[in-house]
Amino acid sequence: MNVAEVNAMTAGWAGRVHGTTVLSGAGVWPLLAILAASADEPGRSELADAVGVPADDGMEAARQMLKALGDIDGIDAALGVWAQEAAQVYPEWAAQLPPANVGQLTGDPSVDKPELDRWARDNTGGLIEHCPVDVHPDLMLVLATALALRTTWVQKFSDDQLKPKHGAWAGRRLAGLNRTSRDLDELSVADTDAGPLSLARIEGDNGLDVHLVLAEEGQPPSDVLPAAIAVVGGEWPVRTGAQLLDAGDEPSAPGVRIVSAQRPSLSITTVRFSVRSEHDLTEHAELLGLQRVSRSREGHFSRIAPVALYLGQARQSAVATFSATGFEAAAVTAMGLSLVSMPVYKARGLQLTIDRPFGFVAVHRATGLVMFAGWVDDPEPWQDE
């Protein structure tokens, strides 16, 4: 499982976000790996660079990633592939795909969209209701992943009203959560490029954890999230909660202070949240390796089909919910390959094609005097440079 490559992509994407959001690089990466194995140059190399594996290994890397995700307790992972008959998808390409739900597109949005949406709902337990792709007659192929994650806290929170006195939420009445644990090391603090970060690890009962990350006030998510991913990945040294308490001094860590307690303990106060996001991945085409293959003037996927295809859509719908009892999240990511066609303009024009023997007349414009007249039976042949 390409953990480092997926985390690097997630961190790079997180470094571009603004405001409330949820995203899943793990949902995008297998699709990009499949596209890398399927694309023509120069898009093939661009995609391979984005996923961090050679293009020739992309299909197998996607297969291993999806299998590894599906084998994790608490995670469901699925791949879906739908194609129009007119796409003439090569059977040998389809045979190389990871195990997938294979369906047919009719070109009729009223038929195809409900089928794609049903797949999204079924494979996320209803957390994602719609597949994030626009269906139209030129949509030849859809590749999609669905990820769903669920865990229950080993130690649950209690619900309580939270009314912050300071900061961006000052004066608001919020759905607060509280709990006290004897495991001081559920808290860790790191000094990073984004400044000091305080991370609280909330342990799930199936091997899945959620790290709540607090930075100094005013730090943007585009700085904090990549730094937090690096901390979780062991790239920054940390001080544990036990080390902070043993030091005796008031910790210089965001949101952390020493309080009176009956025994050494860690009390965590936070909030319930539910976040939904819609992402257009083509807005990050440079990061994700989509610049070349999304150019609609030419085909980029001759390994998939004999018709000229380009990446017309790349989107993700994601949701995450944190409660007193646990955490659940889901993402559906879809890539839509469309048929390359000649540009269609609203204005009308005329075109004259002279492609058989023809005559010519050279005229003095002012007087109408014909200077030369002639006929062309044998034009010049094309000469390669």
Rank of each mutant, 00 (worst) to 15 (best):
Q155P: 08
A77N: 01
S277K: 07
W153C: 09
A324Y: 08
G126D: 15
A175Y: 09
G255D: 05
L147K: 00
P42T: 11
Q155F: 01
W29V: 02
E216W: 01
A347R: 10
D76M: 11
S296C: 03
V238W: 06
L35H: 01
V332F: 10
D76L: 11
R179G: 11
H130I: 06
M65G: 08
S38W: 08
R276N: 12
D108F: 13
R201D: 12
A314Q: 00
V231S: 01
A148F: 13
L79K: 02
S260Y: 12
V340K: 03
T106A: 13
I258V: 14
L350R: 12
L311V: 03
H284E: 02
R315L: 11
P137T: 05
D185C: 05
V319D: 06
L290D: 01
A94Q: 10
D73H: 09
G218M: 10
G74A: 07
G255W: 00
R121A: 14
H279P: 02
T333C: 00
P226W: 04
K165W: 13
P221M: 10
D57H: 09
A334H: 03
V361N: 02
L66T: 00
Q88Y: 12
D160N: 12
P91Q: 00
V135P: 10
P54I: 06
R179H: 08
L147Q: 00
T145L: 02
W29E: 01
Q313E: 11
W119E: 06
K67N: 15
V370G: 07
A148E: 14
P164G: 05
G233T: 01
G207S: 03
E85K: 09
E85C: 06
A14D: 00
L187Y: 07
V102H: 09
V81E: 06
G255S: 03
V210S: 13
R121T: 09
H211I: 12
A253W: 04
G167R: 04
I72E: 10
L174D: 03
I75S: 04
V189Q: 08
A144I: 00
R348I: 04
P220I: 05
S45A: 13
D112S: 10
T333D: 03
D223E: 15
K346C: 06
L214N: 04
T192V: 11
T152D: 10
D138L: 10
R356F: 02
A314I: 00
S317F: 10
L141N: 07
K156R: 13
P306S: 07
V370C: 08
V363N: 05
V81T: 09
K113M: 12
D209L: 07
P164K: 08
T367V: 07
D384M: 05
A68M: 05
V210N: 11
H300T: 07
W13H: 07
G204K: 00
D122H: 09
P221N: 11
R292S: 15
F372T: 06
H300E: 05
K163V: 15
A190T: 01
S296K: 12
L266W: 08
G359V: 01
L214Q: 07
A242K: 14
A95S: 14
R257L: 15
P114Q: 11
V319R: 12
G248F: 13
W375I: 10
